[in-house]
Computed example of a mutant assay.
Amino acid sequence: MATEVSEPEANTDAPHPAFEGYAAESPPQAAVGAPGKDGVLELTFAPTSDGTTLVRDYATVPFHISGTLAHDPHPDAATVFVQSPTGGVAQGDRHDIAISVEGDATAHVSTQSSTKVQSMTHNYAAADASLSVGRGGHLDYVPEPTILHADARYSQDLTLSLETGATAVLGDIVVPGRLARGERFEFERYLSRVRAQGPNGLLFEDATHLAPGESDPTAPGVLGEFTVYGSLFVVAPESDAAETSDDLHEAVTDCEARAGATALPNGAGVAVRALGDRAETVQSTLHAAWDRARRDLIDSPAPSGRKF
């Protein structure tokens, strides 16, 4: 017999109509909005005489940062790896990330390890990231892969705002299950949206929406024979998008993952897509494109994958 759970009403402000049914469900553990469920991360980077410095940071569970690292090959860049003391993202979690890079600063933000989205029976989990880069600044926001456990329901929304002369590189890799355990496309729903704005308005929007119970992700034109999907957005409105697209396509042509590059609308930059059977092959392919892009944008190679 099912036991009725007495919890506060769930937040029905769903990120997409497909999530409205989930939003009406109250999690049987801590409610949406409870301490530990609403994680907040705020980072502000500014230029100083010693290079870029993290001048403000605020984090609540499940986010944790241990300060900046001298990890980046760029002499003036600051690096922050976001850590988590929890076992992953749970149902009802809501995470808000705000990263600001002031003019002429250079920052690299990543996660220490993969984001594990746990199995769910009620509600859903969501992460909203708001990124801004000031005039002449540069941001690399390249988290480790997102792993969707069986029955996971996850929405992530990223908004980027660029001032004149600013650039950014955004990475995203999704792994549809714990592949070593034979868990493949057993998650319930995944929605990822990216939106970029420049000084004159909207540059581009991109969305990935996978729901294996409704539409076969292995169908031709979706993921086909592949399992892991990755994207890298090189947002540089004042660069030559056609030339950059050719350069990045060349960088990934001989990599193990199947990949290609294409110019984004409105001269916004270039998108690189990669498909593979393992997260490592997709990561290495996108890293090759990231490295080529950084050398062009800020005259410095991309950092290595080492996180310690």
Rank of each mutant, 00 (worst) to 15 (best):
M1R: 11
M1E: 05
A2E: 09
T3F: 13
S6T: 15
E7L: 12
P8V: 10
T12W: 04
D13E: 11
G21N: 13
A23S: 15
A24H: 01
Q29N: 09
A31G: 12
K37A: 12
D38M: 13
D38I: 06
V40C: 06
L41F: 05
L43S: 07
F45Y: 13
T48S: 15
S49H: 12
D50V: 08
G51M: 05
G51P: 02
T52D: 06
T53G: 08
V55M: 10
D57F: 05
V61S: 14
P62G: 08
P62D: 09
F63Q: 01
S66G: 10
A70K: 13
D72C: 11
V80I: 10
F81E: 00
S84T: 13
G88W: 03
V89P: 00
A90I: 11
Q91E: 15
D96W: 04
S100A: 14
S100E: 14
G103V: 00
G103K: 03
A105F: 02
A105Y: 06
S114V: 07
A126P: 00
A129C: 10
R135Q: 12
G136I: 05
G136H: 06
H138Q: 09
H138Y: 07
Y141I: 04
T146M: 10
L148R: 05
S155M: 07
L160H: 00
T164P: 00
G165E: 05
G165T: 01
A166G: 00
T167Q: 10
T167K: 03
V169E: 02
L170P: 00
G171F: 03
D172S: 10
D172V: 03
I173D: 04
P176W: 07
P176G: 05
G177A: 07
R178Q: 08
L179Q: 03
R184G: 03
F185L: 09
R193S: 15
R193Y: 09
V194L: 01
V194K: 13
R195T: 15
G198K: 00
G201K: 09
L203F: 00
L203P: 05
H209F: 14
L210Q: 08
P212C: 08
G213H: 14
G213D: 11
E214M: 12
D216S: 14
E225R: 13
E225I: 11
A241M: 11
A242G: 11
A242F: 04
D247L: 14
L248P: 11
E250A: 15
A251S: 12
E256Y: 01
A259D: 07
A261M: 07
A263K: 11
P265R: 13
P265Y: 03
V270H: 04
G276F: 05
E280A: 15
T281R: 11
T281D: 14
V282L: 08
T285R: 06
T285W: 10
A289F: 05
A289H: 01
R294N: 04
I298W: 06
I298Y: 07
A302P: 08
G305Q: 10
